[in-house]
C-alpha cells in the first residue's frame, strides 16, 4: 500500500465557539482530481485554506508526500474565487513576478516563461493588459497561469468560477479540465456540479465541517444516499433543470424525491435532469447535456426539462 500524495488527518479548526473544520480526514492520490461540494459555510474553502497553510489549524495535520507543506515552498498552488491578481501589474508581470523574485530567473527568461504560461491558457495576446482591462474569466485564467508557472505539485481551486457568469465560467472550467487531463493533482471547490461530475475522479460532500460522503464522483452524484447530500443535490438540480425555461411559470415542481427518481434512473431520457448533470450514460449521442452545451456554443439554448 502506497502512501497517498496528500494526506489530511483529523483537521480541526475552531474560531471562538465556531467549529469550522470538525475533524476532516482526506487523502488524495497523485493525479487525482477531487471535487469538494457542499453548502455555503460547510467548510470547503476553509479546508482548502487549511491545506494551503493560510489558516492555522487547531488540530490535525496536513502531509504532502510525507511532509508538512509551508506556504510558498512551491508544493501547493492556489486559485481563488476573487482571482487576487495584482492590479498594478500586467497579466504577463503577474505571472513573471514570482519567477523573478522566487525562482531568481533573469527578467527576459521570466517574461518568456510567463508568455508561454499565458499561451497555455489562451491569453498570450493579452499579456500586456492589466487585470482591470480583462474580463473575469480572463483574469481567472491569468491567475491559473500564474499558479502553473511555479509548477506546484498540487493545485487548490477555491470556487474558481463563483463570481463569473456562465459563459466566462465555461472558459475557466475548460482550462481546469485541460489541466486535469495532464495528470495534475487538484482539489476543486465548486458549485458547478456538472463540472465536478465530469472532471473530478472523486467527490467529497462536506457539511458542518465534516466530510459526509467521499467516493468516486459519479457514484456520489448518482447514488446520493446520504440524506443531506440528497437534499443539497435536489435543490441544485431543480434550479438547473428549470433555469433555462423562458416561461415565467415553471413546470410543475415534482419535489425533491421525484427529481431524485430522475437522477437515479440508469438511462434518463434526453433533456432530463440526469443529462443536465452531464453523467455520461445518461447523455445519448447528440442529446443535450449541460456539459455538452458548455463546450459547444451551437447547443440548444433553452432545453425544457420534461420532469
Amino acid at each position: 500500500m502506497t502512501t497517498p500524495f496528500l494526506q489530511a488527518e483529523k483537521l480541526e479548526r475552531r474560531v471562538g465557539d465556531t467549529q469550522i473544520l470538525a475533524g476532516i480526514d482526506l487523502s488524495v492520490n497523485k493525479g487525482e482530481v477531487v471535487g469538494l461540494i457542499g453548502p455555503s459555510g460547510s467548510g470547503k474553502s476553509s479546508l482548502l485554506r487549511a491545506i494551503a497553510g493560510l489558516d492555522p489549524l487547531t488540530g490535525g495535520r496536513v502531509l504532502v508526500e510525507g511532509r508538512t507543506p509551508t506556504p510558498g515552498d512551491g508544493t501547493i498552488g492556489m486559485v481563488f474565487q476573487q482571482f487576487n491578481l495584482w492590479p498594478h501589474l500586467t497579466a504577463g508581470e503577474n505571472v513573471a513576478l514570482a519567477l523573478r523574485l522566487v525562482r531568481k530567473m533573469p527578467r527576459a527568461e521570466a517574461t518568456e516563461r510567463a508568455r508561454a504560461m499565458l499561451d497555455r491558457v489562451g491569453l498570450l495576446k493579452l499579456a500586456d493588459r492589466r487585470p482591470a482591462q480583462l474580463s473575469g474569466g480572463q483574469q481567472q485564467r491569468v491567475a491559473i497561469a500564474r499558479t502553473l508557472a511555479m509548477e506546484p505539485r498540487l493545485i487548490l481551486f477555491d470556487e474558481p468560477t463563483a463570481s463569473l457568469d456562465p459563459e466566462l465560467t465555461t472558459e475557466v472550467l475548460d482550462v481546469i479540465r485541460g489541466l486535469a487531463e495532464t495528470g495534475m493533482t487538484m482539489l476543486v471547490v465548486s458549485h458547478e456540479m456538472g463540472f465536478v461530475a465530469s472532471v473530478a475522479s472523486r467527490a467529497a460532500f462536506l457539511d458542518h465541517g465534516r466530510v459526509l460522503v467521499d467516493g468516486p464522483a459519479k457514484a456520489v452524484f448518482r447514488d446520493a444516499e446520504e440524506p443531506r447530500l440528497r437534499r443539497f443535490l435536489s435543490t441544485y438540480l431543480q434550479r438547473v433543470a428549470w433555469a433555462p425555461d423562458p416561461e415565467p411559470v415553471p413546470a410543475a415542481d415534482p419535489g425533491p424525491l421525484a427529481t431524485f427518481a430522475l437522477l437515479q434512473q440508469p438511462a434518463a431520457p434526453e433533456g432530463s435532469t440526469m443529462s443536465l448533470l452531464g453523467l455520461p450514460p445518461a447523455a445519448p449521442p447528440g442529446g443535450f447535456s449541460l456539459l455538452d452545451s458548455m463546450g459547444d456554443p451551437a447547443a440548444p439554448k433553452s432545453p425544457k426539462a420534461d420532469g
Binding site: L54, N84, W86, H88, L97, A98, L101
Partner: peptide, 29 residues
Amino acid sequence: IPAGHTEAARLLGLKTNQTITRILLPEMA
C-alpha cells in the same frame, strides 16, 4: 488591499519584504 493579494504572493513564495515593496506599496500608491 484585499488579504487575498498578500495570500497569493505568500503561496507563490514571495517573502514579506518582497510582497510589501513589489506588491502592496505600488498597489496602494
